[in-house]
Design a binder for these strands. Structure first.
Lengths: 167, 167
DNA sequence: TTAATATTTCAATATTTTTTGAAAGTTTGA
DNA sequence: TCAAACTTTCAAAAAATATTGAAATATTAA
């Protein structure tokens, strides 16, 4: 496998994997491209390399910046904007975990809490609803804590210890 | 909030959350319904409660069974098939982690490994591609181990210790 | 202030994904 | 073996999502 093959394989794999962490194909591909690019890229560069439209590129770059994993960069004496991705994969994971917690997990936790707090009326169906949503609430809460703390900050130390412990 | 409101809220939340763990709305809603139902439900029951077609119900039940989180049950003297979900949320999480590892993480790890093994040709772009895909490979590998071991089996003990340690 | 360059927005379009429903298939009791 | 009860399949339709591209907006150098 040569460079170009490897590059394309990586970009398309990352692209289809995107849906997995909740982002669309173009967005994931732009991210992949920036992640392996030693130099910041302009919008033109990205459009050309991925064969996508200007509008698409613009919107998805914005979203990637909202996720906090892609940044604008300005080159001196140039009007054009350039973009880079977060290159440290630990930091990348941290940022993604943080955003997913905020966007998905926390709202869910809130709803589970509300639902599990309805009045117990003695019927089997109510008991079951309360029991299961309570269990899910507890689990989601644990997961949220883990995501925000373990992956959270002083990552490497804990992860390494954990992996050694378990592997 | 009364029972019906809570139930609907739970089902629709779980439904939209489905996309998050990689399954579609109907599938997630069927799962939610079964999870809080004290009794096994028939296909008719499900169709009626969720207002979805027979075909849709059939296909999605099959997929849930493929995921190993919904089971067929036969009532004596009845021809109809009934369905239940895995009720233990720990076991549910374990099963989902296992399947996601198998379906998504492991294939990705394989590709990252291949891509990161291309020949170093001394150019900056090749260096960067190798460096980043290696880092991702390592991280994906760690994540896979964690998913399969921590959530894996003797769950509660480790999780509790971990949470205590971190919280 | 203008004109050139660059970016964003968004309605229209294209693509992908999900859902339907009826026909085909399966199972079982008589 | 038949036919009733039930389930699965899959082509067509609907719905949801992503993408385009051109007009509108913004930015800057002269």
């Amino acid at each position: 496998m040569n460079y170009d093959e490897a590059k394309n394989k990586f970009i398309s794999t990352w692209g289809s994997l995107g849906t997995l962490w909740g982002i669309n194909k173009a967005m994931a591909q732009i991210h992949a491209l920036l992640l392996i690019s030693p130099e910041p890229l302009s919008m033109e560069d990205i459009m050309e390399q991925l064969q996508i439209s200007r509008g698409n590129t613009s919107m998805n770059l914005r979203q990637l910046m909202d996720w906090g994993i892609v940044f604008k960069e300005n080159k001196m004496g140039e009007r054009k904007e350039y973009f880079t991705s977060e290159k440290d994969v630990q930091e990348l994971a941290r940022q993604i975990a943080k955003e997913r917690s905020r966007r998905e997990l926390q709202p869910t936790i809130k709803i589970l809490k509300d639902v599990s707090n309805i009045d117990e009326d003695g019927t089997a169906k109510t008991k079951e609803l309360i029991k299961q949503t309570k269990a899910l609430h507890e689990m989601a809460d644990t997961l949220d804590t883990l995501m925000n703390r373990v992956i959270g900050q002083d990552h490497n130390w804990i992860t390494k210890a954990l992996v050694k412990l378990i592997k």
